[in-house]
Design a protein around this nucleic acid. Sequence first.
DNA 1: AAAATCAGCACAACCGGTTGTCTTATTATT
DNA 2: AATAATAAGACAACCGGTTGTGCTGATTTT
Lengths: 342, 342
Amino acid sequence: MTPRKVTIIDIAKRLNISKSTVSRALSNHHSIGLRTKMRVTQLASELNYEPDNRAIFFKQRKTYLIGLILPSLSNTFFASIVSGVEDVAYQKKYTLLLGQSRDDQEREKSIVETMKNHRVDGMLVSISKSTTSYEHFKLLEKNNIPVVFIDRIPEMKNIHFIACKLENGMIEAVSFLVKQGHKIIGLINGPENFSASKERYSAYLKALRKNKIKPDKKLITCSDLTIDGNVAASKKLLALARRPTAIITFNDYVALDAIDYCKRQKIRIDKDISFVSFANEAICNYMDHPPIASVEQFPYQQGQKATEMLIEIIEKAKPENENKKTFNNLLLQSQLVIRGTH
Amino acid sequence: MTPRKVTIIDIAKRLNISKSTVSRALSNHHSIGLRTKMRVTQLASELNYEPDNRAIFFKQRKTYLIGLILPSLSNTFFASIVSGVEDVAYQKKYTLLLGQSRDDQEREKSIVETMKNHRVDGMLVSISKSTTSYEHFKLLEKNNIPVVFIDRIPEMKNIHFIACKLENGMIEAVSFLVKQGHKIIGLINGPENFSASKERYSAYLKALRKNKIKPDKKLITCSDLTIDGNVAASKKLLALARRPTAIITFNDYVALDAIDYCKRQKIRIDKDISFVSFANEAICNYMDHPPIASVEQFPYQQGQKATEMLIEIIEKAKPENENKKTFNNLLLQSQLVIRGTH
DNA sequence: AAAATCAGCACAACCGGTTGTCTTATTATT
DNA sequence: AATAATAAGACAACCGGTTGTGCTGATTTT
């Protein structure tokens, strides 16, 4: 129990007026005399009076709080999302509540619970890898707390979400490689149960079709995205009799581990084998042999757009619209970024 | 105004009992009969009743909210801090309010104001580069909201803070280079007005003294930490008649830009020149020619320790302790990490 | 001079919980 | 059977603001 802070009641007592007068004086209401207004504002600043949002929002049934739950924060992709979310939230006068699920469903649930009890006006979520039950999100809806999912989307009907469409990026990537003369193009994908993996997988097949290349199951493998997993996947593809001359990886880190492995195996990067990846992390610019291209997924922009979408939903929500709900979703186009040779 | 949620009053009305009975039934109070308890809990779960934290914390004068303000979130150093803070906050049942100042004093002030009005129980701050006035922090103290500063510490008296002591890391760095045979060791520092720069500067001088090397002003330069600034600083040092054989840089990014510049100039890394940096970013492990060593500043741990410190301050704060305030500060030791050759 | 108008402020209800005190009906004690 | 003890729950105040309504005295209107 922290010591109590100055309230309008304290001010009212000292000036021998009622607290409603203080409240109106501070908000410059016309029915309060000039002299009283001046005495109130004067004393308020002397005492360092600060209004208590909770009391205000309590009546308004609004908190101007937005909850954001991400799997991790030390990952640059998610850090960019946070940054985009915060920028928009700040601009629209909302404050951000942050939680990281650490890819643990129970922790995710618990954070949802806490934020719900803090009465956030809405939530932004990138679901954890281990999330299989969506009850906690359904409960939010029952409580009239809108949720916008970002990038990692659950398989639920009737949800708001924003993501980055990878199909076009994958097609650009494959076409780019084909144009460079590659015919045997491998894929190191992420965990099979990821929707992001599924999307890459089907886009990869579509891209091959478009370029009239027959898919070869042996050229497709998965990694659990750990260093060991990435190396194992690389090893598998590079040991093939029909060895790929180019590999597309789930993200930049997979590519970097793969490139590392190649170097140790004296497989020459960009000669014996080329890499194209996803994420387009800035850090790749410092590498001697980065992937020759990477598909940008615009995490910062996803964060921005998701927040704009959420706030719009929050602010247009009215009880009378209860039964004519619509669900917003937005797919940004990904974009292949070809690295300059340097 | 979002539609209203289920309250204990709704439950009370339906069961024709008083709201205090509902409250006590839900918290399993002994003076409520078993039958009533069951009817209440039953109906509560049917209606998806969720307690409103604000009403509870309102009376308790506590929110279990902690505000965290950092200059940026897209920077991995700060992202690690956030991660450490969130982990501890979660474990201790506090929720994190996040804001980024974008190194703008006005935005920092405005975020402090907002969080204060949300009645956070305490705040964690890494001050913005442009912050010169500390009034907004002093006001927090007057409002009995404790603040713990992290890593970027303002020049104020009587504050709580946590930071990472760079002196020992710098001494280790210089000694390491000397042991490798280097005698001419340059320094590319950050902006002069940074306390972090000042600390590196004096530690650098001390380290040279310890190793009986005479400092040479020409070997010391500053960068504004932009790519152009980093390159310009590198150019300056490498153009010297008495050219350094090793350079210590403000952080890894400066080193990477410098290394990049060297490569373009055909200056051979680790032969003609070696680099040691600060921050020890994981990404350097993927480089062909990373700095040979880097001083780890433990941002994740700083976040953790700062949060532990803050929560301790919050929870032991009592009105009667008002005038016997003490100020906590903790300096972690930095640590030189020598990269394995790979 | 009586009635109407209005400025300036007080009073009270409300938001959704918690908690101390009071009431009532039942059971236990002597 | 009369009294004390106890169980179960009602009532009301409180946290710190906002806001609709009511009251009072002064000024204006007729």
